[in-house]
Nucleic acid binder design. Structure first.
Lengths: 249, 249
DNA sequence: CTGCCATTGTTCGATTTCGCACCGATCCTG
DNA sequence: CAGGATCGGTGCGAAATCGAACAATGGCAG
């Protein structure tokens, strides 16, 4: 390997050497602490941001104070898909739900590069497609899946994009993301815990049985992830090398 | 005017003369009766289809038989956005929810043309962006809006894309689209009728008070439509010439 | 060590929506 | 115009979820 560390971001890692070398000088490393706002609703998007670590949420801020998440991404994607689609803004907000870091590029330069390189554009558009499918799955889940399935799906999506099996989240936060009451989240987490699928700790959730969770998530989990793996790259870290906390068999 | 009738389809009508002339020889007129399937889930997309009249639905066919609509389009859009994003298939189904007709173009030729003309591609991508926003609004509505708001929103989206104020739909169909029971639809329609916003007839709904409906739809209706008008063209027919049934003031 | 505060757990009634059953009304077709 | 299918309306009890209040817990700061 070279001294240049490989990108953790799946998109940057999937680029051709040519595209990557071309893009690299424009990418600024950026620290992204918890709650950093990447895109403000209705305001011009200033940067495209590729995550190396952490999680970003796309949320709708309804006027009555209700906030609902409609999509989520980590090192599998980036913030600013609208720029590739030819819009300089979106009506939703994107913020860091789990702190991390990444690389960003100014909107103007980003647009110029995507217009100039068909292969770069194609990759980012394929990612946008998978994100559209994810949003469609969210709409599907919200319409017909009970809270337990939605919650399981959400935990899986988080788990897909993080190392290890410990997820940092509070019930309160989950209740906002899913658009349900906090006490419903508490109750539902207890159900999942009773089924030995997870373990709940203060401020965190530990995934015990991933396959079980997938079963509990219903069919709203899966299509978007399959689409990502079909069109981009493996979503999760290959489990060939067990993580730092191997399950006691 | 020339003898060539103007396209009713907003996208085709928005094209530059050059793009339109270039695209025209590839467009085949196609009749699209009720329930015609435009895109089969998981199968290669064969055509891009631009509607001139009628309505298409993107739906998720879950395994338990539950079908939920995640988006809808009429002469404002087209079926096959995934082709522009670089995917040859989608996990959802697209079918005609209201019969009509349109123009279609084979997938291969369509991809070639969109890759060759940046202006054509840009328009179609902007449309894709508005559709993504629509899907996001659907996810939002499904998560937090009561049935009444979702129903009002759905009627408005239909109304936006049809001439006149009479919408052809059955309670049964609405219940599938919204993912609720039929009797809930019946009940909710009665509420809207009681508020003088609509009039329900067998197999149809007549919009009486559009502004009132917009009020009843909550904030999940609006953002997607505003985005369309900002980036593409007016969505509804201009109300400067009243329709065939002017309201009795 | 101690006190504060975010987080979690529990309870209760109210409300929405579900799931099913049944019946009447309307429309289409032969 | 008669049959048959579709569509709309109604009435239950059951389940999920809501909304609000309150207690218990754990972690961090002073």
């Amino acid at each position: 390997m070279s001294t240049l560390p490989a990108y953790q971001n799946r998109l940057l890692a999937s680029l051709s050497d040519t595209d990557r070398a071309w893009l690299r000088p424009h990418l600024d490393p950026v620290d992204l602490p918890l709650h950093t706002v990447l895109v403000e609703p209705g305001r011009p998007i200033t940067h495209a941001t590729f995550l190396e670590a952490g999680l970003g949420s796309i949320i709708v801020n309804s006027e009555e104070g209700g906030r609902v998440e409609i999509g989520l991404f980590g090192r599998d994607g980036f913030a600013g898909t609208a720029l590739v689609l030819g819009s300089d803004r979106i009506p939703q907000q994107i913020f860091m739900q789990v702190g991390g870091h990444g690389h960003r590029i100014g909107a103007d330069a980003f647009i110029r590069l995507t217009e100039a390189s068909a292969s770069l554009r194609a990759l980012l558009l394929r990612y946008t497609h998978t994100f559209l499918v994810q949003t469609a799955c969210t709409a599907h889940a919200n319409a017909s899946a009970p809270v337990q399935e939605r919650l399981a799906r959400w935990l899986l999506m988080y788990h897909d994009r993080q190392d290890g099996d410990e997820l940092s989240i509070t019930h309160d936060f989950l209740s906002m993301m899913l658009g349900v009451r906090r006490t419903t989240v508490t109750l539902t987490l207890q159900l999942l815990e009773g089924a030995r699928l997870i373990q709940a700790r203060r401020g965190r959730v530990i995934v015990l049985d991933r396959e079980g969770l997938e079963g509990a998530a219903g069919d709203a989990y899966g299509p978007a992830e399959a689409e990502y793996e079909r069109l981009i790259a493996p979503l999760r870290r290959r489990p060939d090398r067990p993580g730092p906390v191997p399950p006691r068999a």
